[in-house]
């Protein structure tokens, strides 16, 4: 790995660089809200893990503090990353998939996407289970609109992950 790339990657973690697309824009037509929903589940899970993490008592051994700091850092990093993935995936749907006629048929679309961006930022910034729950809710709302535009019925079911939250799935024949 080149030193310059390593430095830039490190900077990217602190403050993500804008993306320069060498984009194909074929367009490929392959879109799915599932990525965003999955990312929202991860954000919820990270909040749960953080909340379950036993805080070291005063007078703890340095090893215990180190262990705690390591786990907390990993959960927080993953939470941030997946909140950002949710944003990115929703932006792709909004920018590349949804067409003006979809927005006409579903007038709440733009407002829902706006809400998703704000909620995801909050879920990224804070240790806030409610914000994470809200993020999943809004990605579910977007998923529902998405599948409606494809005339595919949806079902709300308990997700088969440790989070077990209600999730919108397409009912594929």
């Amino acid at each position: 790995m080149s030193a310059l790339h390593r430095i830039l990657q490190w900077m990217d973690r602190l403050s993500p660089a804008p993306v320069a697309h060498a984009h194909c824009d074929i367009p490929c037509g392959i879109y799915d809200p599932h990525h965003a929903q999955l990312a929202a589940h991860t954000v919820i899970r990270m909040n749960l893990l953080i909340n379950d993490l036993k805080k070291p008592a005063s007078g703890s051994k340095p090893e215990e503090i180190q262990e705690y700091a390591n786990k907390l850092a990993r959960y927080v990093a993953t939470k941030e990353q997946h909140a950002e993935i949710a944003k990115s995936e929703i932006r792709i749907l909004w920018g590349d998939y949804f067409k003006p006629e979809h927005a006409q048929a579903h007038p709440q679309l733009h407002e829902t996407v706006f809400k998703a961006m704000k909620t995801a930022s909050k879920a990224r910034q804070e240790i806030n289970l409610q914000a994470a729950e809200d993020l999943l809710k809004v990605t579910n709302d977007i998923a529902e609109i998405f599948w409606k535009t494809k005339n595919i019925p949806t079902v709300r079911a308990k997700a088969p992950y440790p989070t077990e939250r209600e999730t919108v799935y397409p009912k594929l024949a």
């Binding site: 660089a17 804008p18 993306v19 320069a20 060498a22």
Partner: peptide, 18 residues
């Protein structure tokens, strides 16, 4: 700085390059 995405500049630039 920019992070490169997509493949239209291959082989000069690939996704993940800066």
């Amino acid at each position: 700085r920019f992070r490169v995405d997509d493949r239209s500049m291959e082989p000069t630039l690939a996704p993940g390059d800066f």
